[in-house]
Simulated assay, not measured.
Amino acid sequence: KWFLAIYLVTQSKTNIAALALRRQLGISWKAAWLLKHKLMDAMRQRESSQPLSGDIRVDDAYLGGEYPGGKSGRGSENKTAFVAAVEMRNGQPNRVRFDPVDGFSFAALMPWASSALRAGSVITSDGLSGFRVVQQLGFQHRVVIAPKGKAGTEIDAFKWLNVLIGNLKTTLSGTHHAFKFSKYAARYLAEVQYRFNRRADLCALIPRLLKAVMQAKPCPRGVFQALIEQET
């Protein structure tokens, strides 16, 4: 069951939901949910130790929409902030990182920048004040102010980054429709990141994820069982 689950998770063109895993594996939804989240957490642990380097483009992004009658814009209670970053090589995206953060202040972005970026990299942002934290850490920081509207998504500096963010959101919304962003964003984002960063060799994804699972820190069933009960 585990081997087949790893195959399905790694070889699917888009993400595969726990409900689809249940049907493919012939197990209960709870067991499929538990298995899927253990695999995603192994991906998260693996990706957390892989900083980007070189020419890096960064942007602020959010998962989730606004609650009816709730706060609007970035203050919405249903929105989870994350940093989208892409490592460019020869004009093409090489690797990405999608990291949940508490916000886009200096204090929130300092730990992210310290762990997600390799020393000596050149960071390009759109001028959001929080990203100036990279200068304090000794990175070269290039600011490109993007025009408003659709034209701002198509400028060379951020074109590929915006494509990747769009693909990410389409993949998540098309497969899962909705999930508790504040609880599970790190795992779902890590799954997309893990697969993209290893897209060049789909066959190798299977043994590589097996290795990641064996090296990951334990994910006790009791912790996941409590989460499953909250879901149901």
Results as ranks from 00 to 15, higher is better:
Pro147Gly: 04
Gln230Asn: 08
Asn94Arg: 15
Arg187Phe: 04
Leu34His: 10
Glu66Thr: 15
Val96Leu: 04
Ser115Met: 06
Gly174Pro: 02
Arg23Tyr: 15
Thr80Glu: 05
Arg89Met: 12
Cys203Ala: 15
Lys150Asn: 14
Ala151His: 10
Ser12Ile: 08
Ser125Leu: 05
Thr170Asn: 14
Gln45Asp: 00
Ala226Pro: 05
Val213Arg: 10
Asn15Gly: 15
Val101Cys: 03
Val192Thr: 07
Lys30Gln: 13
Asn15Val: 07
Gly222Leu: 11
Asp60Ile: 03
Ala61Ser: 14
Ala17Ser: 15
Gly127Asn: 03
Leu19Pro: 00
Arg46Gln: 13
Ala185Phe: 02
Asp126Tyr: 06
Leu202Gln: 12
Leu34Thr: 12
Lys71Val: 05
Ser121Asp: 04
Met110Asn: 13
Val133Asp: 02
Gln193Ala: 15
Val134Glu: 01
Leu168Gln: 05
Leu35Gly: 02
Arg199Leu: 04
Ser76Cys: 00
Leu4Met: 10
Ile206Ala: 11
Gly138Trp: 09
Thr14Val: 10
Arg118Phe: 02
Asp102Gly: 15
Ile56Met: 10
Pro218Cys: 07
Leu63Thr: 06
Arg57Thr: 05
Ser28Asp: 14
Ala5His: 09
Asn197Glu: 03
Ala84Trp: 02
Pro68Thr: 06
Gly152Asn: 06
Met88Cys: 04
Trp33Lys: 00
Val86Thr: 07
Ser28Lys: 07
Arg142Ala: 13
Ala31Glu: 13
Ala81Glu: 00
Gly138Thr: 02
Lys71Cys: 01
Gly91Ala: 05
Val192Asp: 09
